[in-house]
Simulated assay, not measured.
Amino acid sequence: MTPAARVQTAIELLDAVILAARSKGAPADRILGDWFKQNRFAGSKDRRAIRELVYAAIRACGPVPDTGRAAMLRLAEVDPSILPLFDGSQYGPAPIGESEQPAKGGVAPDWLADRLAKSGVEGREAEALLDRAPLDIRVNALKAARATLVLPVEAEPTATPHGLRLPTGTQVEQWPEFRDGKIEVQDTGSQLACLALAAQPGETVIDLCAGGGGKTLALAGAMDGLGRLVATDTDRSRLSRLKPRAERAGADMIETRLLDPKREMEALADCAGQADAVLVDAPCSGTGTWRRNPEARWRLDEAELARLRDLQNHVLDIAAQLVKPGGRIVYITCSLLDEEGAERFDAFLGRHPALTAQTLALPLGRSRGQGWRLSPFHDGTDGFFIACAG
């Protein structure tokens, strides 16, 4: 493909991404993946270039663009080398018309950028939310040790006990160390969130919103595979991914439970008041993960944010029913919005006066309200709010 044809293809894919964002359809990575499968004539260099163009254009736009062409014109403002490719050549984009306007830049749609600013995230810190994310892995303590593990490429130790940072784009899934369960891909921020729970061997620990189980596996390692570890979720598809991952990691002490929304305690009745520790990795807007999913900021609206706040309140109240006296609850959101973080935690403590905020001592981050914040700009991690009650 010519460079101009790559630009035109990226424009057409951006049209699909924009439509999907407005209609809550497929994510960008799936749209691109499907196109690549259906258009085998695009070689590996073409696919790489097209992917980079699409995601660079997404990052360059703040509000949802009207069209993929407007998004690409916005990218051309950032990268002028794209402008000559609007040349009208065969398979390339038509020349730029005198009245054509590029999409608006910025960090996010205006209403959302304002919410971030009110949460203390603006300027360079806000811009860092759209940087490219590094590749972090966690050495599985059940099978290996960071100090002695030999990998195919050089890795840099992170601030967590088992963390390593690799060059972006490293294909770790093809390594025998990955297939053997010695390593897992996990952002340093996620590893620190698990560290905050301080899970110990022999304890009863509940991962209340386990999803695919990345944090559950980290907790299993912290517990040396000893004790009771219950992973729960309301999403059958996501939870089903945990079993093969746990088998690969040698974490055979993990128990999974599928929960019925709004009737969660029916499936957890035997755990009521029994947990030494409960991890609440609550569903959230994901503003702290835009480096990985930049089009997510186009999918969020105020109604969805209100729904998520209600859901966060709900799962926190479930955790309060599960923890035993003297136990601890760690609340996590991969969001930098105070209304999903510090404000939700304050409201939770107000509803449960028997619980009080506990001090966290993590090697990265800074205090935010009665909890702790990690951010891409300050810490090089995904954005998180983490708080502990006990």
Rank of each mutant, 00 (worst) to 15 (best):
T2G: 01
A4H: 13
A4K: 03
A5R: 13
Q8R: 11
I11Q: 05
G25R: 13
L32P: 03
L32E: 06
F36E: 14
R40H: 06
F41N: 10
G43P: 00
S44T: 09
K45I: 04
L53W: 12
A56Q: 14
A60L: 08
V64S: 07
A70L: 05
V78H: 11
I82S: 04
P84S: 12
F86I: 01
S89K: 07
S89T: 14
S89V: 05
Y91V: 01
A94Y: 01
P95E: 13
K104H: 04
D110M: 03
L112F: 14
A113P: 01
D114W: 01
A117F: 02
G123I: 12
E125K: 13
L129E: 10
A133N: 06
V139Y: 10
N140F: 12
A141F: 08
L149C: 08
L149N: 06
T160C: 01
Q171W: 00
W175Y: 11
I183P: 09
G189Y: 09
S190E: 08
Q200I: 02
G202R: 04
A222R: 14
V230A: 11
T232Q: 02
R236V: 02
L239Q: 10
R241H: 12
R241K: 14
P244E: 08
A246Y: 00
A251D: 11
E255N: 03
K262V: 12
L268F: 06
L268W: 04
A269C: 03
D270F: 02
A275H: 06
A277T: 08
D281N: 13
A296C: 04
A303W: 03
A306H: 07
D310I: 05
L316N: 14
I318M: 12
A320V: 10
V323P: 00
P325C: 05
G327K: 02
Y331K: 10
T333N: 11
L336Y: 03
L337Q: 07
D338A: 14
E339G: 04
L349G: 12
L349M: 12
G350T: 04
G350N: 02
A354T: 15
A357W: 07
Q358I: 08
Q358F: 00
P363N: 13
R368N: 15
R368C: 15
G369A: 09
Q370R: 15
G371F: 03
S375L: 00
F377I: 00
D379I: 07
D379Y: 09
A387C: 06
C388I: 02
C388F: 02
